[in-house]
């Protein structure tokens, strides 16, 4: 019993160390990678343009629901005037970075993990290595760099459409005057909140993308399954782990900021 606890904790420590080495290797490989720019543009496309619709849709509906629920709660206290404050702070501080990251994990992260897993299984990664190409620098580094840029952008777009969603449900459909709503929004959002929002988004991007990359890259290497099963297992692990880590990271960062 005690021995198995020890073994599990050793495994965890080993895994974390391996993971950190992997992330470090990705960043250190950046200077040596050629034609990084084109791969970077492709990665921005995969995480940015391709995922934009889902982020915008989720953003609008989050704003709509926040407006609706917030209105009914606040109107009990006669404080509908604070609806803009509530919607904007919820969006900026929590909803936008977390939900945008979860959506990006679902769409781009899973695809990335599966792609890497297949590339591992069809020896494409081995082929890169035998060509003398740094496989991590070629496959992972551009995506990590793109995530640092794309996640904050997606969070910002999420906030913008979310605020519109809140104004639609709160002031167009329900009773809050739109001037009151927007002036409450303006009063509520401070640079501190935006900084929290964007730094959270960047950290989530880094976490999620590196977890997905790590899982995909090692598909079928550390575990008994192989072939399609290894890829599907790696993809599942990538999505579950990175979603959990985004929420855990959110709590930790929030407790530092507040």
């Amino acid at each position: 019993m005690i021995r198995s606890v020890g073994r599990v904790s050793l495994d965890v420590v080993e895994g974390l160390g391996d993971f950190s080495l992997f992330v470090g290797r990705s960043f250190f490989s950046v200077p040596g990678t050629r034609r990084l720019w084109r791969r970077f543009a492709r990665a921005v496309h995969e995480q940015g343009t391709v995922c934009l619709p889902v982020v915008l849709i989720v953003g609008v509906f989050t704003g709509l629901v926040l407006g609706l629920q917030g209105y009914h709660v606040l109107s009990r206290f006669g404080s509908e005037g604070l609806l803009g404050t509530m919607v904007s702070l919820s969006l900026v501080r929590e909803m936008a970075p977390v939900l945008a990251a979860l959506m990006l994990i679902g769409q781009a992260g899973s695809a990335f993990a599966a792609e890497l897993g297949i590339q591992r299984n069809t020896e494409q990664i081995a082929a890169l290595e035998t060509m003398g190409v740094d496989s991590v620098g070629y496959l992972v580094a551009p995506r990590l760099l793109a995530a640092l840029l794309v996640y904050p952008f997606q969070a910002a777009l999420f906030v913008v459409v979310g605020l519109w969603g809140g104004s639609v449900s709160g002031s167009m459909l329900l009773g809050v005057d739109s001037g009151v709503y927007w002036s409450a929004v303006d009063r509520a959002i401070e640079f501190r909140d935006l900084r929290e929002c964007f730094s959270k988004a960047a950290v989530f991007g880094l976490l999620a993308t590196s977890i997905c990359a790590y899982q995909g890259f090692h598909a079928g290497l550390n575990h008994s399954a192989s072939g399609a099963r290894a890829v599907s297992a790696a993809t599942t692990r990538a999505v579950v782990l990175s979603s959990i880590m985004v929420l855990v990271g959110d709590y930790i960062i929030s407790s530092f900021f507040v």
Binding site: V44, H45, T49, V150, P152, V159, D186, D193
Partner: peptide
């Protein structure tokens, strides 16, 4: 691809600037 990436990056920058203006002097 380049066009789409450019559109996305511009949109992202616009959103960030928009929010920063809101956070600034307000109304």
């Amino acid at each position: 691809l380049e066009f789409l990436v450019g559109v996305f990056v511009l949109l992202g920058i616009a959103a960030v600037v928009h929010l920063s203006l809101r956070a600034g002097s307000g109304t």
